[in-house]
Design a binder for these strands. Structure first.
Lengths: 138, 138
DNA sequence: CTCTTTGCAAACGATTTGCAAAAAT
DNA sequence: ATTTTTGCAAATCGTTTGCAAAGAG
């Protein structure tokens, strides 16, 4: 109970009420710096009872509050990853074969963003994902 | 009839049998260098009768044959664009407000691909999409 | 003639929704 | 006390599938 207060605080700071599921979800996502699917989350979150709909609602709330990032690697479902200042802006590479996901800890969008700014775009954001065969699958 | 032979040829070159839907679909996608949704395609393809399932099957076949590119901008549905050597490798920017999609005619992935190659990845590909407010929506 | 493609209707799977009850602050 | 969150069940929506009939080469 005692060290859950950290997570209660985080939720409150983000204007989210603290509930059993939200605490466990935040704890889980904080422990893994890895984009998890809803299914993976459900398999891990076995200590409490909750409904699937509630999980999706919490994930949406967390995303809106920028507590987590929603990641779409074109798999047909979404992944969720804690939004952490330490690994701030990064990208991912997923292995074509084993589906392992790794972080690419830097970005290279400046040239395109400069081009887009000149073209008249504002408020520019981007998505950039890589795919390839990892060294163990080769 | 006569100038459809061009499209029949293209289909055959790609080992695809020529059918009324495939011809019209190829003609439509060739006329627009723009990533269209299945719904948009259906609204345009009114001269012939066909089933939705057939359309999706044709889109999948075309993609496998690399006649078209399937594009996922995270909208919850896919878009399809003719695969054309003239605009070969490019990316897209979509306006946050009006959803207009424009082509970014160049790429900047070399630095990351070099990094990934060093890390042991082979067969690297990527996805890169930009989002922002366009000049008319500003 | 053989293999591929089609139409139809039903299935899919991730996510969302309506609603009334329960919980958080 | 008020607002938010939950559980349940049903719905949504883009896309896919099984199957037997039709069409292409």
């Amino acid at each position: 109970m005692v060290h859950l207060e950290k997570y209660i605080d985080i939720l409150h700071t983000h204007h989210l009420k603290s509930t059993p599921l939200r605490l466990e979800l935040l704890k889980l996502l904080s422990s893994k710096h890895h984009p998890m699917t809803a299914e993976e989350i459900q398999k891990k979150l076995t200590t409490i009872a909750y409904d699937q709909a509630t999980l999706f609602r919490s994930l949406k709330k967390f995303t809106e509050a920028k507590l987590i990032n929603t990641i779409d690697l074109g798999e047909g479902f979404l992944r969720y990853e804690i939004h952490c200042k330490v690994h701030s802006h990064h990208h991912h590479i997923m292995c074509n074969r084993c589906k392992k996901i790794e972080v690419i800890p830097f970005c290279i969008s400046q040239e395109i963003e400069k081009y887009l700014t000149k073209t008249g775009y504002t408020n520019i954001s981007h998505r950039m994902d890589f795919f390839g065969q990892c060294s163990t699958c080769k």
